[in-house]
Amino acid sequence: MTTSWNQPPVLKVRGLKVYYETPKGDVLAVDGVNFDLFKGETLGLVGESGCGKSTAAMGILQLVTPPGRVVDGEVLLEGHNLLGMSEQALRAVRWIKLALIPQGAMNSLNPTMKVSAQIKDAIIAHEGKQANKGIKPRILELLTMVGLPGRVYDLYPHELSGGMKQRVCIAMAIALNPTVIIADESTSALDVVVQRVVAQTMLKVKDALGVSMIMIGHDMGLMAQMVDRIAVMYAGKIVEIAPVKEMFAEPKHPYSQLLIESVPSLKERKPLKITEGITHDPRNPPPGCIFQLRCPFVMDICRVQPPVMRETNEGQLVACHLYPESVDGSLINVADVARNP
């Protein structure tokens, strides 16, 4: 592992709020998200559909489109706040420092352009025109890195399988040597064996380049294989962040416990764990804890007071009234952090 925990984080997200406007009021899609991403680290962002994980990624990239809007917060990439940056300044950051492998990336390739032309496009758009002589070996090297043969250079997307297209998208994402890659459900449309090949490619590339990655998904099995830390999101908020081992060995938040219990096993047959989806109106969350309507351990305090993030043991942070004690008595107050002058 090349993760550097003792250096300042590469990406710092504080109090990020992204709302969607509807006639009946704003949907609080992302409501005060805080996390750090360190160099060389892979952070998994998990939660059910509608919990705001993809919206959070769009918020970080400043790609939220109406009716959505970023309401508040800070996204500090190597110390520079991306929020409020001009479109021109953002162009210098996107792809060069912050690359995205979008959901269904393989369908985002242009069917009328050869693979080589598309990768070249991405490079030229950000670095300016340059001689073909320099670019071709660079593209071939990128293809080799993601485990594709050189002949892919001259092929069109329809001549490639899903897994190969996905790897072309990874090659494009790393073309400019970014600091952070955000991968949104980037392997979920693939067959199991191909998914494994693509996932292993991503890990190899990540280690080779020392890049940091945010992996968005809902497959806990895949997360266990790929990430260093996991952040669990529920209804627009992060309810727990922990190193992957701790998360699987001892999930603290009742929702994390539920997520991990609901992973079907290939080792033993066990009774199915049945749950409902998000139950409250996302425009009007209940006061107190957002998980109270589904929580099996709900207490009186949960209905009135939102829990704050506490570090229950090293590296494991959880927002739940079941854990009132921190290791060192410290509180990480979401509201305080969010209101940064």
């Binding site: 998914q195 494994r196 090949v197 292993q200 099995g221 266990a224 992957v244 699987f248 991990i260 290939l266």
Partner: peptide, 22 residues
């Protein structure tokens, strides 16, 4: 069966697979 990701961070995929050309 071997490629199904195991929901246990201590049990990682072993070895690499190389898919032949499409």
């Amino acid at each position: 069966v071997d490629s199904v990701p195991v929901p246990n961070p201590d049990v990682k995929w072993e070895g690499e697979i190389i898919l032949p050309p499409e």
